[in-house]
């Protein structure tokens, strides 16, 4: 068997195949300058922030408590801008 045949056998024949969800290894958190911080006292639990986050890194803890995964949060501020009761502030501390 020639070397070219051997290397062809190792390669997928027609496509590049990767593991599902392998982008999780790429921590996009350091992209951002700011990070969102929730004021749970003000929060009404409307779920807007979780629904509109482009990363999907905001989670609902319980009734009126949300938090973001700063490993992936790019600090765009969409959640803070869209919050109907202004319970989210964008800060630069401990980014």
């Amino acid at each position: 068997m020639s070397t070219s045949q051997a290397s062809n056998r190792r390669k997928p024949p027609f496509a590049v195949v990767t593991r599902p969800g392998s982008s999780l290894r790429n921590k996009t958190g350091p992209w951002g300058i700011q990070k969102p911080v929730w004021d749970w006292e003000k929060c009404t639990g409307c779920n807007t922030c979780e629904a509109i986050c482009p990363e999907g890194c905001i989670r609902h803890l319980e009734k009126k408590q949300y938090e973001a995964d700063y490993d992936y949060c790019k600090g765009c501020g969409m959640c803070a801008a869209a919050c109907p009761v202004n319970a989210i502030t964008m800060t630069t501390e401990h980014r």
Partner: peptide
């Protein structure tokens, strides 16, 4: 934080910050 692949679309993608498309795909 844990992310299950049953969500369909997971974090770590390279969309610009504030991308409307990434948000729509998640929805």
């Amino acid at each position: 934080f844990t992310y299950d692949i049953s969500r369909g679309f997971l974090p770590g993608h390279r969309a610009c910050a504030g991308c409307g498309q990434a948000a729509a795909v998640r929805m």
